[in-house]
Amino acid sequence: MTRTDALALIRRYYDAFNAGDARGMLACLTDDIEHRVNEAGHRIGKEKFAEFCGHMGVSYREQLKDMVIFANDEGTRGAAEFMVHGEYLKTDPGLPEAKGQSYLLPAGGFFEIRDGLISRITTFYNLNDWIQQVSR
């Protein structure tokens, strides 16, 4: 895979995210996808990733904007930086009550790519910033 291919794969993944297309996101992933979120758990496999997407789709409505995507020359690693424009729809256990609050949150993702698919996604954001925004 080339750098250009890796950039296109990551773009395809995030385009599916913005379209609310969980199947499109899953199509970009290896069967043994490793998904890490800085403030949450660590999950392995497409089934666990699909469960996460289902939960997120009920609790949050998000669009990722101002995206910049990077990849190494070998096309095996990538990263993206973006702004999350979101709405908190349904209370997530252990978090503040959802009342349709809007939020704007800088975030990023790091990727490993294997055999033309994403094999690891690590997402970072500032949970305390998000809590302050939705607690107003």
Rank of each mutant, 00 (worst) to 15 (best):
L95M: 11
C28H: 05
Y125N: 09
G108D: 04
P93M: 01
G24E: 00
G75M: 01
M56V: 13
T76G: 05
Y103V: 06
M67K: 11
I113T: 02
D115E: 11
R11I: 06
D32L: 02
R136A: 14
G100I: 02
R136K: 15
N18A: 05
E87Y: 05
Q132M: 13
E62T: 13
S102N: 14
T30I: 01
F17Q: 10
E51R: 00
S102P: 15
G100F: 00
M25T: 02
S135A: 01
G108H: 05
P106N: 09
R12G: 15
A22M: 00
I131A: 07
D129G: 06
A19S: 09
H35F: 13
S59E: 11
C28Q: 07
E112G: 02
H55V: 15
D32S: 00
M56G: 12
Y14W: 11
P93L: 02
I121R: 03
V84Y: 06
P96W: 01
I113G: 00
E34S: 05
Y103F: 12
A40E: 11
Q63R: 15
Y103D: 07
G94I: 10
R23N: 15
E34K: 05
L105P: 08
A40F: 11
A98W: 03
T123L: 10
F49Q: 07
K65E: 15
R77N: 10
R77E: 10
V68Q: 14
N128M: 11
N126R: 05
T2W: 02
K48W: 03
G78M: 07
F49D: 07
E112P: 03
D5I: 08
L95W: 10
Q101L: 03
N72R: 09
K99D: 13
R36T: 14
Y14F: 15
V134T: 07
R43V: 13
N72V: 09
A79E: 04
A22I: 02
T30A: 06
P106F: 04
E74K: 13
H35A: 10
Y14L: 13
F110M: 09
V68Y: 08
A8V: 01
L117F: 09
I33S: 00
E47T: 07
H85N: 15
S135Q: 04
L127T: 14
V84T: 15
R61H: 12
V134Q: 02
R77D: 06
Q132V: 12
L95Q: 14
C53M: 13
I33W: 00
Y125I: 08
L26P: 03
A19W: 01
L9Y: 00
A107C: 06
A8E: 09
E97I: 08
T122P: 12
T91R: 00
L127G: 06
A50V: 04
L89C: 12
H35K: 02
K99M: 10
V68P: 05
A19Y: 05
Y125R: 07
T91I: 09
